[in-house]
Design a protein around this nucleic acid. Structure first.
Lengths: 108, 108
DNA sequence: ACAAGTACCGACTAAATAGTCAGGTACTCA
DNA sequence: TGAGTACCTGACTATTTAGTCGGTACTTGT
């Protein structure tokens, strides 16, 4: 595997994937249970949600906390590294929001 | 096609794709000819480079200027919108650079 | 005449990513 | 006993994205 050629390259690798930006956005508002994420990230399937969460977990962006209860409860939250990532993503989120209409119109 | 759910979602759609971050990074240093980009974005094939450039062009992120000469010369540069995007990407680039080692190690 | 340089196009194939669906655990409540 | 909840897993398929490779047009240099 080739080394990253720039910071942007590295960052893109971490947030790449169809659902990660939206998962990160949801988690930026606080910890979320699996079921909550499934609702907030509308359209995602359970399988994809798990897959992307596992990837973010292995990158140490999100933390997974299992509560031993019945029915089970698993809570996902941003790690300190995840928090710094979200800070770095904030301007991009703002940019997207500011140019939303323009971007919607040039989509297809 | 569903509307974007947040700014991050919209932005990710624009910079999504294996090569766009690196193309944007190269163009952030000034206008580039097609052949120059091919060298700077090492590993990219001509087909992919064109494809991604066309997409960025249709999103009004990059501008394509054809010089009527022989041999042909085509220069790509960031539009004003592209410049604002790159400003928004700067913190992400920095984040990636700062955590490069950590990210490299958790890659596979 | 013909190779070389520059910027492409398009058919085909391969790899990566995402979606569907059936199932599984491990308890609680009626 | 059977239904319900929450959180998954894995096999299989579909879709999306990327890569290979051959070809084009035009003109300069040999």
């Amino acid at each position: 595997m080739k080394p990253y050629t720039c910071g942007l390259d590295a960052a893109a690798d971490v947030i790449g994937g169809k659902w990660k930006p939206r998962i990160l956005w949801a988690l930026s508002h606080g910890p979320r249970r699996f079921g909550e994420l499934r609702k907030e990230v509308s359209g995602v399937t359970e399988k994809m949600l798990i897959q992307q969460l596992r990837e973010l977990e292995s990158r140490r962006i999100v933390h997974r906390e299992v509560y031993r209860q019945v029915p089970p409860k698993v809570e996902y939250s941003l790690t300190p590294l995840g928090e710094t990532l979200n800070v770095a993503l904030a301007p991009l989120d703002l940019w997207g929001a500011e140019h939303m209409e323009e971007l919607e119109s040039s989509r297809c």
